[in-house]
């Protein structure tokens, strides 16, 4: 553990090194075989998703008669039904609130904790950092049953947004600190010295210089926390009922309650995934950077 945790100190966040596109030297592409393989990969990857989207435009009769066909005629009632379904919007709203609260806690507490760990010298700093690294070893799954008891019996947070958001944030914090610390460390020391010469305290430095400059790092950890919360299933499954359910629970319930209405299931699932999918793909670089940073930590 110890050896790897010191790595970030030595290697500042990678962007500069990776700016160079690794496109050359691969002995120029354009080979038809490469395109053929790329085509197969795209079909295999997108096939199920596209099938789900198109399935929402078909009737159940069409789906049973010929599963592998295009909509004929195109039917919009499935999607209209989902859009008119108040539960769908309630689930979406719950998911948004839980994800936003989780993300806000993770980013604020994460950057606060990472700041002294990155830029203060004090006895026990590395030991304190190790507490967060050790936190990485406790997957949420392991503690989910006692967590469920703690939240419902001791804290009275069963079936609330906070009951899901707080533990999710807690489990995301170790990774956040591990990603942010090298990021904050890499900001030049001269900035801090100049700020101090100008009479700025360390807290002033944190607010006026560090926070604005660490925007990209905070976006990265924020996006990771948001994606994690948005897709989470196990903890919400144990804690949330009725109107408090998040979208993944809604999708799973709809799928089991309307198992004979395949077209409806496809429509519901499609509408639940498309907006998030677009947002996450736009943030792809952040997610990849974050995962790489986390792994290196």
């Amino acid at each position: 553990m110890t050896t790897s945790t010191q790595m970030p100190a030595v290697t500042p966040p990678n962007p500069p090194a990776r700016r160079r596109r690794g496109s050359a030297g691969k002995f120029q592409g354009g080979n038809p075989l490469v395109y053929a393989i790329a085509f197969v990969v795209v079909c295999a990857t997108l096939g199920p998703v596209v099938y789900g989207v198109l399935g929402g435009f078909r009737s159940n009769g069409q789906l049973t008669q010929n599963p592998a066909a295009l909509p004929d005629p195109w039917i919009f009632s499935n999607y209209a039904g989902v859009i008119a379904n108040p539960s769908f919007w309630q689930y979406t709203f719950n998911s948004v609130v839980v994800a936003v609260v989780t993300t806000a806690i993770v980013v604020v507490f994460g950057v606060m904790a990472a700041y002294p760990l990155a830029r203060y010298t004090f006895k026990g700093r590395e030991a304190l950092f190790m507490v967060f690294v050790a936190g990485l070893l406790f997957p949420a799954t392991v503690a989910v049953i006692p967590l469920f008891i703690l939240l419902t019996q001791n804290l009275g947070l069963g079936n609330t947004w906070w009951g899901v958001a707080l533990p999710q944030a807690a489990f995301a914090l170790p990774m956040t600190v591990v990603i942010l610390r090298p990021f904050l460390k890499a900001l030049p020391q001269e900035l801090e010295e100049a700020a101090q010469l100008d009479g700025t305290s360390r807290i002033g430095f944190f607010w006026r210089i560090l926070i604005p400059l660490s925007g990209p790092g905070m976006v990265t950890v924020g996006v990771l926390a948001f994606v994690g919360s948005w897709n989470a299933y196990l903890l919400p499954l144990l804690l949330l009922q009725g109107d408090m359910k998040t979208l993944p629970l809604g999708v799973a319930d709809f799928s089991s309650e309307h198992s004979s209405d395949t077209a409806g299931v496809f429509a519901f699932t499609t509408l639940a995934m498309i907006p998030a999918l677009v947002f996450f793909l736009a943030m792809q670089k952040r997610i990849v950077n974050g995962l790489q940073g986390a792994v290196k930590g």
Binding site: V42, P48, S255, T269, L281
Partner: peptide, 17 residues
């Protein structure tokens, strides 16, 4: 981007499909 699509889907969504 396309290759990344299944990864950013929720496991629940992928599972239901």
């Amino acid at each position: 981007t396309i290759i990344f699509v299944p990864y950013v889907l929720a496991e629940v969504v992928a599972g239901v499909i």
